[in-house]
Design a binder for these strands. Structure first.
Lengths: 104, 104
DNA sequence: GAATCGCATAAGTGTGTGCTTATGTGTTGT
DNA sequence: ACAACACATAAGCACACACTTATGCGATTC
């Protein structure tokens, strides 16, 4: 079940940080490591988990591997999250306020 | 960090099932167990995790404890998820299509 | 007030997870 | 061709996690 993979992937704070970094722009594995105090194998393993969950996708470029957020995974979360629309704060009535609320 | 508690709580499929059940209406712990093949202590422990994550809240009623989805936790997910708005599928442009897409 | 009920907590156990070190694989540069 | 590089994979280990059985605790029932 891919939904399970997604939530298990996001359950780790390091992986959420990686995902957040990729949300600001695509990067290769070394680029992701800078400023993160994480070993190369650990990063590789985390990226593997995120990739299998469909949250991230790769693109080989020579000896580099460029990673970016996979909108497919994001869409999957959106679908799951939509099931609980009934419990969204009442003031979230239209997209503008929804987005503003999500921003902060 | 409450965000970590939320994702760790949702990483377990049994807890997601419980959360989903509560989304259809508040219930006590015994009611949640029906049709789920889970021991009473296990259910109690899962509810404890969901409660600490802010996804669920309880309300004592005599010797029963009624559980319901906590909109606070749902709002928290909405805020996190909003950070990745840039990667939502392009066709999701307004609330109507967003909600329709989330529905299925 | 004693038994029962609904639920929580304690303690123990097997399994999963995230890290480490070591090594493999494919690519680039000289 | 050989070295250096970017990354993946393997194996081992410490710890977290979800379950079990046993017990505790407060509220109801008789």
């Amino acid at each position: 079940m891919i939904e399970n993979d997604i939530f298990k992937a996001l359950a780790d704070p390091t992986r959420r940080t990686i995902f957040e970094k990729l949300a600001t722009g695509s990067m290769n594995a070394s680029g992701l490591r800078t400023g993160m105090q994480i070993s190369q194998p650990a990063m590789s393993q985390h990226l593997s988990v995120l990739r299998n969950a469909g949250l991230v996708r790769e693109e080989r470029q020579g000896r580099f591997v460029n990673y970016e957020v996979d909108p497919e995974g994001v869409a999957h979360i959106a679908r799951w999250f939509g099931k609980y629309r009934a419990f969204w704060p009442a003031r979230i009535g239209d997209l503008k306020t929804l987005l503003k609320d999500m921003d902060q």
